[in-house]
Amino acid sequence: MTNWPEGYGRRVLAEVDSTNAEAARIAPELMAPEWILGLRQTKGRGRRGRAWVDPVGNFAATLVMRPAESPDQVALRSFVAALALYDAFVAVTGRSAGFALKWPNDVLLNGGKVAGILLESAGLAGGAVSHIAIGIGVNLAHAPDTGAVEAQATRPVSLLSETGAAVDPESFLDALAASYARWEAQFVTYGFEPIRTAWLARAARIGEVMTARTTREETTGTFETVDSAGNLVLKTAKGRVAVAAADIFF
């Protein structure tokens, strides 16, 4: 373990049901931010309760912490995590070509999904957030079969197959924790604007047409930007539309 960030805990579990579930269990006694890495995850999950396929050799980890900000600001840490992931990939591969960030919480490699982020929080009376769990899954060595993802979803890829870089989960955790600490310090010190600017510089498909789909509706338009609240802004035939949460299809 090299360059582990000061002030962050680190626990590596041989097996766990879900690192986000483990985060919820340890949160009440938490004294400082803590990374949890599961070398085998038996009940991994993604957004909207979807199963997350997690073969041995891939990466499943959660950062659990007690944030001080309001709930809307806490949620912006998905962008902090995305930037940290991007930098970790660059650190372990020695290249930035092919990597891009897909709103709201995926990392793409050569157009395919190589990583995803699941942010969960628990609240206290008065609307404050008691803790946040930032779950991160990375296809380091294996990608799910395309039949395991929904129709029109971004195809899954692995870091190994696309770059030839063989990276073990603990080494990737070291790189990710270091890069996350740097971006977290920026976020806490300067707010969301520099995070937003950096994220947009690495964003996939700016200026291109995409569809934002929820369980109730879908909106198709040109990806213009991400606003100060983290919403996706699409230029449509009816004007500019800000999308707070959705699945994105290219």
Rank of each mutant, 00 (worst) to 15 (best):
T215F: 10
I132V: 15
L200H: 07
P169C: 09
D168N: 14
P156W: 03
T215W: 11
S121W: 09
K235P: 00
L176I: 11
Q186N: 09
T163H: 03
A148V: 10
A143H: 01
D145Q: 13
A153Q: 05
K235W: 03
I195C: 06
I206R: 14
E162G: 04
L173E: 04
P169R: 12
A151H: 11
A203G: 04
A198Q: 11
P169M: 09
T146I: 13
A166L: 13
D145R: 12
E208P: 03
T211I: 07
P156Q: 04
D174V: 13
A153P: 03
S158Q: 03
T189L: 07
A143S: 05
F172H: 07
A212V: 04
L140P: 02
A151E: 12
A185F: 00
T215M: 12
L173Q: 05
A178E: 15
L124W: 10
S158D: 01
I136F: 04
L124D: 14
G123K: 12
V149N: 09
R202P: 02
S158A: 02
A198V: 00
V226K: 07
E193R: 10
T154F: 00
A128S: 15
L173I: 08
L160V: 04
L200Y: 06
A148P: 05
G191F: 05
E162T: 10
H142G: 00
F187W: 14
G191L: 06
Y190F: 13
A229F: 11
A212S: 01
A165I: 06
R196S: 06
E218Y: 06
W183R: 12
T215V: 14
L124H: 11
T214R: 00
R205Q: 09
A212T: 03
V129R: 09
G191T: 05
G135I: 02
R155W: 06
T225E: 13
T146N: 10
A201Y: 02
G135V: 02
R216P: 01
L234E: 03
V129Y: 08
E170N: 05
R202C: 01
A204F: 05
R202D: 02
A165M: 07
D227Q: 01
R196K: 14
G127F: 11
K235N: 12
A175L: 10
E150S: 12
Q186C: 11
T211A: 04
L232Y: 04
T197W: 06
S171L: 09
R196M: 06
A203P: 08
E162Y: 04
A185H: 09
V149H: 03
T220F: 01
A125S: 15
V233H: 04
A198Y: 05
E184R: 12
G207Q: 06
I195E: 09
R213Q: 11
Q186E: 14
H131S: 14
G137P: 07
L159R: 02
A128E: 15
G123A: 13
H142P: 00
E193K: 09
A203M: 04
S121T: 15
R213N: 01
R155H: 10
A165F: 07
G191E: 07
A151P: 05
R205E: 10
K235H: 11
E170A: 08
T189A: 15
A229Y: 10
I132T: 15
G135L: 02
A125K: 14
A166I: 07
G207Y: 06
L159P: 01
G230H: 07
G221H: 03
R205F: 12
N231K: 10
T214V: 03
T220P: 01
D174I: 05
A133Q: 07
S179C: 15
V233M: 06
